[in-house]
Design a protein around this nucleic acid. Structure first.
Lengths: 130, 130
DNA sequence: TATTTATACTGTCAACTCCGAAGTATTGGA
DNA sequence: TCCAATACTTCGGAGTTGACAGTATAAATA
């Protein structure tokens, strides 16, 4: 990181979009940039095969509609799997796919760090709410 | 990961409200959950002390108003520093703070992985645009 | 002198996306 | 008949984003 910035006349990058810049603007990151998405992956990772109600209970702050949307997106993206049992009352279980577990591994350090930061920030009194 | 959740019995360190769940819903993650935020941290990490124009050029997709907002948020959060030189034409340089670099370290694996995933997804033809 | 250029934004407004409260469907039990 | 339980939808308002235009400054240019 922190490459020499004087590369105004830098070596022929604009010719090809074969950017070595690791900043994907496309699919997965856009998905994960939505509210609660990363945390959602994280809880499913934590509590394993989880029913809708379990997840909802864990995320008191999130409305069911938003939760529903996020779950669907994550399933569509191949990060979560959804297993439906035809019972009454209905039962549905969400679980990480293999891809989802890969993601979880990358997410965990980030979330842990964030938790830490939030605590120290709260301690020093700096608050910035959304 | 998928730790056994019974790690609650560990060292009883935090007197804080219970949750050993590593899914912070507060400040930093909320900030990073906004569109382009993570990628923004990433480019500043990549190109070092960066001027507004440089960043804007890198993110063609982002409007200047949004970029401006994100930068401000990240500066307020202590992730980026902003150095203003009183020259004409004006010059402003953004750089990662120490905290920002910590974040960058956690972000890099995620973004790399995302890039990879997007490529294979594109290859298999599954698309989900925002 | 007047105009252009360069930079880093800010303002405005319309479009888009997100969010939460309340409602839906199903069937067994009181 | 009414209620409970589960996993969602629906709807209208709130919040976010983007396109475009404008601001400030002084040196360079016509």
């Amino acid at each position: 990181m922190a490459e020499t910035p004087d590369s105004a006349t830098e070596t022929a990058d604009s010719s090809s979009p074969g950017h070595d810049c690791l900043c994907p603007l496309g699919g997965v990151m856009d998905l994960l940039s939505r509210r609660y998405a990363m945390q959602l992956v994280c809880v499913v990772d934590a509590i394993g095969p989880a029913r809708y109600g379990d997840i909802e209970a864990t995320f008191e702050e999130v409305s069911s509609s938003t939760l529903s949307t996020r779950l669907e997106e994550l399933v569509d993206a191949g990060i979560l799997s959804r297993e439906q049992y035809d019972e009454i009352p209905p039962r549905v279980e969400y679980e990480l796919t293999e891809t989802g577990e890969e993601l979880g591994e990358r997410l965990e350090p980030l979330l842990r760090w964030a938790e830490e930061i939030d605590e120290t920030e709260l301690a020093t009194g700096q608050s910035k709410e959304r």
